[in-house]
């Protein structure tokens, strides 16, 4: 017992080391939240282009670009993508590491979210599009007011899970000089030469976060299913 208190004292209290954890957690959450939003934005656009191409054979060039994007992003490790952004593209120092991580993880997530949205859009009965179009609504307006809102509801739990995956995936942000939660724990380890305590604390925080958000997503799913049953 005394031993535990002592190592907590050393790893957290001394020199205000807990701030590495707090700041790291803050960065992890900032990166995760904004990367998820960017991923949703990109994913929705890519999914719309691909669905429109599938339905109408229009947007051929854009569709090819989207396919390339998905293939490249899903076919390479996210760490490499981050490092390319960091060391090759944003070489000037006035873009912060956090910003680069948001962009990198956002672009990465977009490629996965695109497929989620695409299956969501395809799950909406074709009669909805036909009803919208036969009322005189344009293709885009029908998508915007009728198809996308329904598809969004369908994919909401999956998007929640994507968020949870990103919480963990962003732990490699340290590769591009971002002090996220993992890096924060690592810094403490390098100061105290105690590996167990900071790593367990960090692992515990990740576990706590994913459990909380998973419970949230599950509740969301149950609520959505309840609404569905009334159909």
């Amino acid at each position: 017992m005394e031993q535990i208190i002592k190592s907590l004292q050393l790893n957290l209290i001394k020199d205000n080391r807990y701030m590495y954890i707090i700041d790291g957690l803050k960065n992890t959450m900032i990166i995760t939240i904004f990367a998820t939003l960017l991923g949703i934005f990109l994913g929705l656009i890519v999914a719309l282009v691909r669905t429109t191409y599938d339905n109408t054979k229009k947007l051929k060039v854009l569709n090819a670009i989207c396919n390339l994007y998905i293939t490249v992003i899903r076919g390479t490790p996210v760490v490499i993508q981050l490092m390319i952004l960091f060391f090759c593209i944003f070489t000037s120092r006035n873009v912060s590491g956090v910003m680069i991580a948001i962009i990198g993880f956002g672009i990465n997530s977009g490629a996965y979210v695109a497929e989620v949205f695409r299956s969501g859009l395809m799950s909406i009965d074709n009669g909805q599009m036909e009803a919208g179009r036969s009322l005189g609504l344009s293709y885009l307006d029908t998508m915007k007011f009728i198809i996308i809102p329904q598809a969004f509801k369908v994919v909401l739990p999956t998007l929640g899970n994507e968020f949870i995956v990103l919480i963990k995936e962003t732990s490699v942000a340290g590769y591009v000089a971002v002090q996220d939660l993992t890096k924060g724990g690592d810094i403490i380890r390098s100061r105290t030469y105690d590996a167990w305590t900071p790593l367990l604390i960090v692992a515990g925080i990740y576990l706590f976060l994913t459990c909380v958000f998973s419970a949230f997503v599950k509740k969301l799913e149950i609520n959505l299913r309840k609404n569905e049953r009334k159909d």
Binding site: G127, Q128, E130, A131, G132, S134, L135, G136
Partner: peptide, 14 residues
């Protein structure tokens, strides 16, 4: 199309 109303077998309400 805005001048042609259409009613479907399966209603297709939103």
């Amino acid at each position: 199309r805005k001048k042609i109303g259409m009613v479907f077998q399966h209603f297709n309400l939103f």
